[in-house]
């Protein structure tokens, strides 16, 4: 696939729910209870359980891997965690990822990513570079 500056790449929706947060906690080792235990999350002033920022970023990474045609082509990836993804029990929360090509430098493709949840951007300054 060839990429040109300004290309808007197909958006993709990912679903986040409590079971996925538990699986991510186990796979990543981040067992902070704010990502699993509703009572605990509320006790520290959160609205409800929130997703690990790194889980949201990992899903964005999966999206970038798909754009690139494989995880092995991803070279740079960065994001700021601007808003929490709130995950109430029994609900699939939709995370919508989209990307726009910001630069093409030799065989390196740079994209700006947008991650939206409940109509709010949950990642800021999200960028990735992958090999064409």
């Amino acid at each position: 696939m060839s990429f040109q500056v300004g290309d808007e790449l197909a958006a993709k929706t990912f679903l986040i729910n409590r079971a996925k947060l538990v699986a991510y906690a186990n796979a990543s080792g981040d067992q902070n209870p704010i990502h699993q235990d509703e009572d605990f999350a509320k006790s520290v002033g959160l609205e409800n359980v929130i997703a690990h920022g790194m889980f949201t970023m990992a899903l964005a990474g999966r999206y970038v891997s798909e754009l690139a045609g494989g995880s092995e082509k991803v070279r740079e990836f960065s994001a700021r965690f601007t808003k929490p993804v709130v995950v109430p029990a029994g609900i699939d929360v939709e995370l919508i990822l989209s990307a726009k090509v910001s630069a093409v430098e030799g065989n390196q493709i740079k994209v700006d990513l947008i991650a939206i949840c409940d109509e709010v951007k949950v990642l800021g300054m999200a960028k990735a570079t992958f090999l064409a």
């Binding site: 186990n26 990543s28 995880s71």
Partner: peptide
């Protein structure tokens, strides 16, 4: 598996955070 990535031949881009 936790992030729904089918390719397991290399680590996903954020794997090293663990």
């Amino acid at each position: 598996l936790a992030i729904g990535e089918p390719n397991t031949s290399v680590a996903p881009p954020t794997f090293s955070i663990s």
